[in-house]
Design a protein around this nucleic acid. Structure first.
Lengths: 147, 147
DNA sequence: CTGCAACTTGAAGTTCACTTTAACTCAAGG
DNA sequence: CCTTGAGTTAAAGTGAACTTCAAGTTGCAG
């Protein structure tokens, strides 16, 4: 078994077939076809799917994942070093998020004592020191469970 | 100036007027009306909006925010103790998220060395110990910037 | 009293990451 | 050969959290 069907890749990766097809439409993964037009995945695709899953957990959008994956060499199967390089970038992102959330936690702890929540006085709701990079609008940081 | 117009509340809270109207439709905040049908906000609403903003940063959905706000006393203006009680719940949630992300970071650090990303072997992409509470599907954890 | 910024509404649009549906074809065991 | 589970497609739907639009009204400074 050199290649995987979509069902096999789905079972091994824990990603639904519909999501795998979606990823292919979005150019994140690739598949060859049988004579009957069914997808056959190279084993290396498993690692790509894996990378996508991790990136999701880190909080990276699929757009950014595509960008990262596009930076992989096209002429050869990516090496461990290639994957390490990309993962290192995510680790940095992840650390940034953690730092932001820790600051928020510490400030929230301070505010719990006073119960203020005053937009004028409370750093929390009015982060002049910009907790997140996103600027003005409200920021959705965590989506607890994909519906 | 006892009350605020929607523009004033927007300016003071940093939340767009359209979002404030949306929150009202969703039952998160309340406004009285002038004879000409324009909204006038009690100053206490500022604190509600503040609470919503913080909850967003913590990663709480509006549904849960509404639930929390509904637990506030209806017959009187909430006290600092009321707000403290609610905030304490968020702090706990926040700590949970941080713990999850820290574990992810540490595991990612371990994997960067080996570059494996193998679904069979790597805890990261195949969390039998369920990194997140959400079950099977991929989890979108962080949304870096509201588009 | 006029002009204009700020307000009002409901409905439709947006983004992300998928899932669902319908109608169909393929692959393989009995 | 036939059945059945697994695969195929395009298009539409989902849900969260809003925003945008169009068409109209209000409030207040001058």
């Amino acid at each position: 078994m050199e290649t995987l069907t979509i069902g096999e890749l789905s079972a091994r990766s824990g990603v639904a077939p519909s999501a795998l097809r979606f990823y292919e439409r979005e150019g994140l993964i690739h598949a060859s076809r049988t004579s009957g037009n069914q997808r056959r995945y190279d084993r290396a695709e498993l690692r790509r799917v894996s990378f996508i899953k991790i990136a999701q957990q880190v909080g990276v959008s699929l757009d950014e994942v595509r960008e990262a994956l596009d930076s992989l060499p096209e002429n050869r199967t990516p090496t461990k070093a290639d994957w390490s390089r990309l993962s290192a970038r995510w680790r940095y992102r992840l650390q940034e998020r953690i730092t932001v959330l820790e600051r928020l936690r510490d400030e929230l702890s301070g505010c719990i004592g006073c119960g203020c929540l005053s937009l004028q006085r409370c750093k929390l709701a009015n982060p002049g020191d910009r907790l997140a990079a996103g600027g003005t609008g409200p920021q959705r940081i965590l989506n607890p469970a994909a519906s």
